[in-house]
């Protein structure tokens, strides 16, 4: 009998404590409110001051971008990718380090490296990407990076890149080449050699 009433008493008091907390939060709704009405309001992204040379390391996990004029086609990022979402094809350039204006190929990178290869295909399938950031580090020319981060003036961060068509998530970074241009690059004309 005593236990019966003790049970009831315990239920009432603990419920009162719990409801007290809930009510306190409800009264202080201005202060305690954490819900954001998403499309109208955005969560502020943390201010990143990571305390050392900012340019070298990327602290943002967003979509990838490639400065194709700086790419030398070394395939290091392709090899680093654990899910194989980066695909690169290259063709040997006829002359090292010279521009080919017909196909918009620049011969020298921003860091001053002479390019020996023409990147004929550079695609990243963002629907496969696992955002592990492993491809960013090995790049010798620092041309592949996640947008935002140190390159934010060039490419502001964008987390919302959903598409209606799955194919639109395959990003093509290389300059478009026709098949004639490709075969011309692969088999240089004899008069050009002479």
């Amino acid at each position: 009998m005593k236990k019966y009433f003790a049970n009831i008493w315990g239920t009432i008091t603990t419920l009162k404590t719990g409801m007290g907390i809930t009510w306190r939060h409800m009264i202080n709704i201005k202060k305690d409110n954490v819900t954001l009405q998403y499309p109208e309001e955005r969560w502020p992204r943390p201010e990143r001051d990571i305390g050392f040379e900012h340019e070298d390391y990327n602290v943002i996990r967003s979509r990838l971008h490639v400065d194709i004029d700086d790419c030398i086609g070394c395939l290091k990022c392709e090899r680093a990718c654990p899910v194989d979402c980066i695909k690169i094809d290259t063709i040997k350039a006829p002359t090292r380090g010279e521009d080919i204006p017909d196909i918009g190929h620049t011969g020298v990178t921003e860091n001053g490296t002479n390019k020996a290869l023409v990147v004929s295909r550079f695609t990243i399938d963002m629907s496969e990407c696992c955002y592990c950031n492993l491809c960013v580090y090995p790049c010798p020319e620092e041309c592949i990076y996640m947008v935002g981060g140190p390159n934010s003036p060039k490419h502001p961060i964008d987390y919302e890149f959903s598409e209606f068509n799955r194919k639109d998530l395959i990003y093509e970074f290389s300059k478009p080449l026709t098949s004639e241009q490709k075969s011309e690059l692969m088999n240089p004309k004899p008069d050009a050699e002479a």
Partner: peptide
């Protein structure tokens, strides 16, 4: 998760600890 995002950019799947070190140093503050 905000602290993790501040440190390594990711909120759930971090890839933060590497063999021999970590991918990012801690932020200043």
């Amino acid at each position: 998760l905000d602290i993790f995002e501040l440190t390594c950019g990711a909120r759930l799947l971090y890839n933060y600890m590497w063999v021999g070190g970590v991918s990012h140093d801690l932020p200043k503050d």
